[in-house]
């Protein structure tokens, strides 16, 4: 009897989260734009991961002989001002831009989730203190703060990633706090507390999984935003530093040659555009898919 009960419990436990996910997945599958976005994201991640093997040329090999060449069969997207192959650099740039994107989003999420869940779970003066701090952070235009910190501490890929992550956690924090405020009053939380569970276990095992949907949506949309922020910082000379190619610094380098060699800036620009669009479409689709109010048709 006990064994039967245990298996039944396991079944229930495995069914509940997966049925919510299944539900979301079913809705997502019907959203063609979101699927297209997801597909493009997958291709970009793959090409970034495989860049060393699929890039036809080195990303840093300079050649005066082949400066500013138009797109051709040898250099598919042409060459830049130092004679480097633009296609190979766009592939390698995907690595840098995605690393900054995922790294910064991961860090922002980590900080936002920790602070947001503590604020939402404990409430009271802890909540008050954390939210006032969040308000303060939200008063400083993030790009101002980011460029100040990066310029003072020195520009590099890692610094850019860390600074963006450390500055942009506020929105995640607010979202998670909002979710936790309503979740902590629910019966299963009361039950967990009545069983004498530790707060950390209640937060991470019981509440957080229930707040996961908006966090995933937020993360997806935020990766798109980070890629845009990085390109803006690169334009000011504060992103990944040459010769490491990021789409942002390629765009900035190409800007100097715009009137004579349009391809240098255009292709990294398009790479940014399609990547950001793809993450936005996917994030939007995920939001609709997780939203119980939303029918797949609208």
């Amino acid at each position: 009897m006990a064994a039967v009960l245990r298996t039944r419990q396991k079944q229930l436990a495995s069914e509940r989260p997966s049925s919510q996910l299944n539900d979301a997945w079913r809705k997502l599958k019907r959203n063609r734009l979101a699927l297209a976005g997801g597909f493009v994201v997958l291709i970009i991640i793959l090409s970034a991961a495989l860049a060393p093997w699929i890039a036809p040329h080195s990303y840093r090999q300079q050649s005066l002989m082949s400066r500013l060449q138009e797109p051709s069969s040898d250099h598919w997207l042409g060459t830049d001002g130092y004679g480097r192959d633009v296609f190979s650099r766009v592939l390698w740039g995907a690595r840098v831009s995605l690393q900054i994107g995922f790294g910064a989003a991961g860090l922002a999420l980590f900080i936002g989730v920790i602070l947001g869940s503590i604020a939402g779970y404990y409430g009271g003066y802890i909540d008050n203190a954390i939210m006032r701090f969040t308000d303060i952070m939200m008063c400083i235009p993030a790009l101002f703060l980011a460029l100040t910190v990066i310029a003072l501490f020195g520009a590099s890929m890692i610094n850019t990633m860390i600074v963006i992550g450390v500055i942009y956690w506020t929105r995640t924090c607010r979202i998670v706090r909002g979710e936790f405020l309503s979740l902590r009053k629910r019966e299963f939380t009361e039950a967990a507390r009545a069983l004498g569970m530790k707060d950390s276990r209640i937060i991470f095992r019981h509440l957080l999984p229930n707040a996961l949907a908006p966090i995933i949506v937020q993360a997806t949309l935020f990766i798109a935003q980070v890629i845009l922020i990085e390109s803006g910082l690169s334009f000011l000379g504060l992103g990944a530093q040459p010769p490491t190619p990021s789409w942002g610094n390629m765009l900035t380098e190409g800007y100097k040659f715009l009137s004579m060699a349009w391809w240098i800036a255009t292709f990294p620009g398009l790479a940014i555009f399609f990547t950001v669009l793809a993450f936005n479409l996917l994030g939007d689709g995920l939001r609709d898919a997780f939203d119980p109010k939303q029918q797949a048709s609208s």
Partner: peptide, 20 residues
């Protein structure tokens, strides 16, 4: 008022901690 004081403390700290 406290919000703006908080902003100024954060900014000031960044400049003090920065190398160079």
């Amino acid at each position: 008022i406290p919000t703006l004081i908080g902003v100024s403390i954060i900014l000031f700290s960044v400049m003090m901690i920065a190398p160079g």
